[in-house]
Write a protein that binds this DNA or RNA. Structure first.
Lengths: 201, 201
DNA sequence: CCCCGGACATACTGCGCGGGATGTAAGGAA
DNA sequence: TTCCTTACATCCCGCGCAGTATGTCCGGGG
């Protein structure tokens, strides 16, 4: 058997990013402790500061290299569906069965980070804004497609509806997570389904 | 002329609460610096710790004695209107003209605190939850009244719609504030108006 | 085989903040 | 006037954290 090489810079960097993402997800960025990240990853502080200039730079890299793909993969299926509304309602119906606990206990990592850091640090703000814009644009494009093929009312303003939808999604995540309130989240999902249906012709 | 008495415990306490509310509004609770509160209020640390056992206790008092009345007064007019939907749409239309800048730069203080502290500290969580529940209950009651007098569709589930509405309101506040994005907020308001209209029979 | 630069490891520092210990003066009751 | 409680003022401590200085070792190019 070949012994694992002792120095694997790419792997070390990736481990740091993954563990930092988890720690940030749990505690937020400010409250995230470098020592906790180091302990969980088995990497030392010297290695961390070799790969990243500062805690902030580490956070920026997490947003770009972990959070962005995470968001993309999460919503891609719904946005790519030929009937957005149908897919979204289905998504809302399935959520309580799968992966809801994680969302309740930890919330949406994007929303958490956005609320915490976007206003305080432009580096975070710009990167998170790019994710948000891509998401909104994707929803708006999906709505327009729906209007063309007749599955969405023509008098709906796609840009406004996309902003409203995003707000409602992130808002319900935030409120539900803060109190781990499954009941609230399910009620909000019900309301969301009602809204989605009202977008139909 | 009668000199101002040197010891005014109630007034001192009130000044501390007001200044703490402002500081928390700007910086959040954790980042709020006691020294900053003291400097702004002209009160000393000894006085603060005479009136409040800890920074946390001060925060709890701010929620109960400042934030709760602040929220009540903010929404009372809309919730008491005989036509909730009409009043809410009017509210959304007037917002861009009045008091929007404050909301954009500082966000909704309730939402900020809720997201930051509700999960971490049960003292905050319970108090904030009470405010949220009262708000939701008020909206749901208003919707039911609307259903009785014919201004709201009968097939709307008031509890779910109230949760959805609250989520959308707080979500849009949060997203708009984080980036000071007036455009996003106005788009979300447009979407909100569309939703409110869809509640009509 | 050498050796130099990159990839780590370890120990330390500085700082901001919450909180407490201790001192002091006002003012009402007896 | 006395006295004791309340309402403040001042100063200091400890803790947790990000960040840094410095040492060490692997591993590939010459």
């Amino acid at each position: 058997m070949t012994a694992a090489p002792k120095r694997q810079p790419d792997r070390t960097r990736q481990i740091l990013l993954d563990c930092a993402f988890e720690e940030i997800r749990r505690s937020g960025f400010r409250a995230a402790s470098l020592d906790a990240i180091l302990e969980r990853s088995g990497v030392t502080k010297g290695a961390l500061y070799h790969h990243f200039d500062s805690k902030t730079a580490l956070g920026h890299a997490v947003v770009e290299e972990i959070l962005r793909p995470w968001m993309d993969s999460r919503w891609q299926a719904v946005l790519d569906a030929e009937d957005l509304i149908e897919a979204a309602i289905q998504f809302c119906r399935e959520l309580p069965q799968q992966g809801m606990d994680e969302l309740l206990t930890q919330g949406c990592p994007f929303n958490n980070l956005f609320n915490e850091m976007a206003a305080a640090d432009a580096g975070f703000g710009d990167r998170l804004q790019a994710i948000l814009d891509a998401w909104r644009a994707g929803i708006a494009a999906s709505l327009r497609r729906g209007q063309r093929n007749g599955s969405v009312r023509k008098d709906v303003e796609p840009v406004a509806a996309a902003a409203f939808l995003v707000s409602a999604i992130e808002g319900s995540m935030g409120l539900a997570r803060a109190r781990q309130s499954r009941a609230f989240f399910e009620a909000a999902l019900q309301g969301m389904i009602g809204y989605l249906q009202s977008l139909r012709p």
